[in-house]
Write a protein that binds this DNA or RNA. Structure first.
Lengths: 87, 87
DNA sequence: TATATAATTAGATAATTATATAATTAGAAA
DNA sequence: TTTCTAATTATATAATTATCTAATTATATA
């Protein structure tokens, strides 16, 4: 759970998720969208994967990344509790 | 918005929010609940306040903290977009 | 007014994190 | 099998962050 929050803190990683929300992309395509080195993006992808926010699958020499939203439900639930009115 | 995510990353700060969800508390009461120095808690409270997640009001020599959830709606919305199915 | 209490600010430090470059691994194609 | 491309791993570094102790500020009370 902490891993999920930590993954979501970084703006680059949130943007990656936003992009993956629209379409699956491979690592190179993702890296192209940012002004950051490929290894650095690879690192961000790793953090997202460890948090369970993306999945990766190798196709030939490409690695295709897909968003995985199930863990986000937990985050939503926590927020819902916080927002919920005190009785 | 970044400030909100950053504020939410830290487990101590999330726990503070959970506590404040139940009741308003003053700085000392909050600090007592953790095994962390008072200045450190003060620092966390400052980050929460800058993110708009709490408000503080001085009553005598106590400072009473209250949760403020409106910014959390924005976070919820971002998560909702991410979770939303691709069409 | 002197002292005690609540909280914050100041300053230092250890740990974490985002980033880069260089090296490596794996697969595709000449 | 050599070479090219995609991606990751290894390593180093600068910046950020969480924490501490000490000092300060503000209020209350003896």
């Amino acid at each position: 759970m902490n891993d999920v929050w930590d993954a979501l803190t970084d703006p680059t990683r949130r943007e990656i998720l936003m992009m993956l929300k629209k379409n699956d992309m491979n690592a190179g395509e993702i890296a192209e969208k940012f002004d950051i080195s490929k290894p650095s993006i690879s690192h961000h992808l790793n953090i997202l994967r460890n948090a369970g926010l993306v999945r990766s699958e190798k196709h030939g020499q490409n690695v295709i990344y897909t968003i995985s939203t199930s863990v986000l439900e937990d985050v939503m639930n926590i927020l819902a509790v916080l927002i919920e009115k005190r009785k």
